[in-house]
Design a protein around this nucleic acid. Structure first.
Lengths: 201, 201
DNA sequence: ATTTTTAATTGATCGTCGATTAATTTCCCG
DNA sequence: CGGGAAATTAATCGACGATCAATTAAAAAT
């Protein structure tokens, strides 16, 4: 049995928090939400479970932080997809949405596997961070709408994100495969285009 | 400590299985996927945890059976919505999709909270049972498509289910509320109509 | 009737989990 | 150098999924 090490100061509090988030993110990618373990995260960076709880307070707050990191990476992925995706920016967005989820199944699903207890809220700064993903979509939808309809862009963007999300979810969780569907991305893109064309695009 | 009761035969094996599924379904409705406990289900019907495992073999198979029951109730709900929903059957389907999910949050979410390990499959009979929900949608989409496109009905139905599902998911898990969206059903229905109109409806 | 076989049921057991906390160690500042 | 503040630990708790030897009672065989 090892004894307590007291104030070690190898790392500042913020550094320790980052280490836990990054390592927790890796662990989530490895084993998925159902098998995720806070103990294991602490062990992986050489700290005890008690220290982890001193940093995050609760299990939920650790998961929230890990999932916020996923949003950040996802947003970066979409920005890159838009940069490198050529002229058809709507296609780039839809394909980017799918490619991130497919390449990061466990951490992407963890966002939706985690349900906040009603008394828990996401810290403001993380909420803003997460909102950037939707903002990207709003921006691209607005750019493609007729001027007269630009005010509808935020609502339409939310709806089209939901549309693509539904297709992506059925792809990643195997529902589409069970139904014999092999082209989820094409379907999602077709639905988005139909809605945009209905708005005059 | 109580002693084993041996072959009791109060209930047949199939009856016992049904009791566990029905009680498990209630427990899932009460506490949701994250707090669900197989022990608690067994206790609720006056059996031990061991007996439950003798019936279902694994935790996953119990959850699968509970979720299949949800599909059955959901399918019944949609059939009723179509019967009583008047002439606009597409609207009836979309609203029925949402109203079931909203009225049965925990058990509806449990369907998507549960991820099968790759080596586990859904028993054939339960798979067929679950497929009836999609069949209902295919039927209604086919009825509304021009004759020349009827062959596309299954694929389009899958895609429109995904569209509605995405909206329903964002509604039930609070994403829409966080984004300030207050009319998820109307949005979903609008997207579905746009796609059907694009097909000539 | 008696014995044998089979089926059903139990709960103790194991390792692990999230969460909490008293005790301990180390750091830093005066 | 000394003492409060900060950081870290290990032990602890109740509950979880899973397993299985032991036990019982019904059914079948004799």
């Amino acid at each position: 049995m090892q004894e307590p090490m007291g104030r070690r100061s190898d790392h500042s509090r913020k550094e320790l928090e980052q280490m836990l988030i990054v390592e927790g993110h890796k662990h989530m990618a490895d084993v998925g939400f159902a098998r995720f373990s806070a103990r294991e995260v602490a062990k992986r960076i050489g700290y005890s479970i008690g220290t982890l709880y001193n940093v995050f307070g609760t299990y939920d707050q650790l998961i929230i932080a890990i999932n916020t990191r996923t949003f950040t990476l996802w947003t970066d992925h979409l920005r890159l997809a838009l940069e490198q995706g050529g002229a058809d920016r709507i296609r780039a967005l839809v394909e980017g949405y799918f490619s991130f989820a497919r390449a990061n199944r466990n951490i992407w699903m963890a966002i939706y596997d985690h349900h906040l207890p009603p008394d828990v809220t996401i810290p403001e700064q993380q909420h803003l961070q997460r909102g950037q993903l939707t903002e990207i979509v709003v921006q691209e939808i607005r750019a493609v709408l007729p001027e007269a309809l630009e005010a509808q862009a935020p609502q339409l963007a939310r709806s089209l994100v939901a549309t693509v999300h539904g297709h992506c979810m059925f792809d990643v969780n195997g529902s589409f495969a069970l139904m014999g569907e092999t082209e989820p991305v094409a379907l999602a893109l077709a639905r988005v285009r139909e809605s945009l064309e209905a708005k005059g695009f």
